[in-house]
């Protein structure tokens, strides 16, 4: 790796890191696990003047319950999420998603905060975060704010985070009884990124015959991950049947301009959004029923 020259800074505390980010603004990039930033720097597509290494900050890697919610520190690695017993019981969608990211090496180094802040259009977490209605906590030198996942992803590699902010935590409500979730992904064979990835989170009615609520997050399909509201509307309040799921899944790409690249055309991505929405919803229902 022969990047352009940069100044490396390794703050010892979050406060110190926030002051550095504030001071350097656009000229600085945060380094956490490095699995998004370093490949760009290696190719000199990214040539930040300052690299602020927050990977060593203490107290930002954790998965714990807080006030009835699950709080995940931004520096928690994909592997830690994949292997978390707490998440396995309270929010199995997240470990399931983490297990499908890249390869073992990527999962051992990459962090959830880094992945979300980078907002790669093919990243896996955004789909799950959206389907879980997670909250993203961002800090700057004057305090913290909470950004709903639904608002977080703005465009390709662009989020609601302001210059000077650091993503510090992800908060998720624990799963409710009669709810189930699944992440279904068509991976791009070279990079492992999602060509299309669909996270479905459903809450069933009494007896498991109806869908009360559905939350569908889709990644890979377009420049940003989004909530497939048309699918959600088509599912909510319905009696569960293959036809209902199939019909609802047809709306997976509604209102979306699909990406098109050498790995998949827009036409194919659109079709895969249907297929993988159906698969994710069907499996989420099975998971929800397993709970009953």
């Amino acid at each position: 790796m022969i990047p352009a020259s940069f100044e490396y800074q390794a703050p010892k505390t979050l406060d110190e890191a926030l002051r550095l980010v504030e001071r350097h603004g656009d000229e600085a990039k945060l380094l956490a696990g490095g699995h998004s930033l370093l490949p760009l720097m290696k190719l000199r597509l990214a040539t930040p003047r300052y690299v602020i290494d927050i990977g060593h900050l203490r107290g930002m890697s954790y998965i714990r319950e807080e006030n009835g919610q699950i709080a995940i520190g931004a520096l928690t690695t994909h592997t830690e999420i994949e292997q978390s017993a707490l998440l396995a019981s309270k929010c199995p969608l997240l470990p399931e998603t983490a297990a499908q990211i890249g390869d073992v090496q990527v999962r051992n180094r990459g962090t959830i905060g880094g992945s979300l802040a980078h907002a790669d259009p093919g990243a896996d977490y955004p789909a799950a975060i959206l389907a879980l209605d997670a909250e993203i906590i961002a800090a700057n030198t004057s305090g913290t704010r909470t950004i709903p996942a639904r608002d977080f992803f703005v465009d390709m590699l662009t989020t609601q985070l302001h210059p000077g902010e650091i993503l510090t935590q992800i908060r998720i409500a624990p799963r409710r009884a009669q709810s189930g979730a699944a992440y279904e992904k068509l991976h791009q064979p070279a990079s492992g990124f999602a060509i299309v990835g669909v996270a479905a989170n459903v809450l069933l009615g009494e007896g498991g015959k109806t869908i009360e609520q559905a939350a569908i997050g889709i990644t890979g399909l377009s420049a940003r991950a989004f909530r497939a509201e048309a699918v959600e509307r088509a599912l909510s309040g319905k009696h569960i049947s293959e036809k209902v799921i199939e019909d609802a899944s047809r709306n997976g790409a509604e209102g979306v301009e699909p990406l098109s690249d050498l790995h998949a055309s827009g036409e194919y991505r659109r079709e895969m959004a249907r297929v993988f929405t159906r698969r994710a919803v069907a499996r989420a229902i099975v998971a929800a029923r397993g709970d009953a």
């Binding site: 590699l157 990124f193 420049a223 790995h263």
Partner: peptide
Amino acid sequence: VGQRMLDAAARK
């Protein structure tokens, strides 16, 4: 190396 992003970048 930028194929994955080119299309979306141009649109942006």
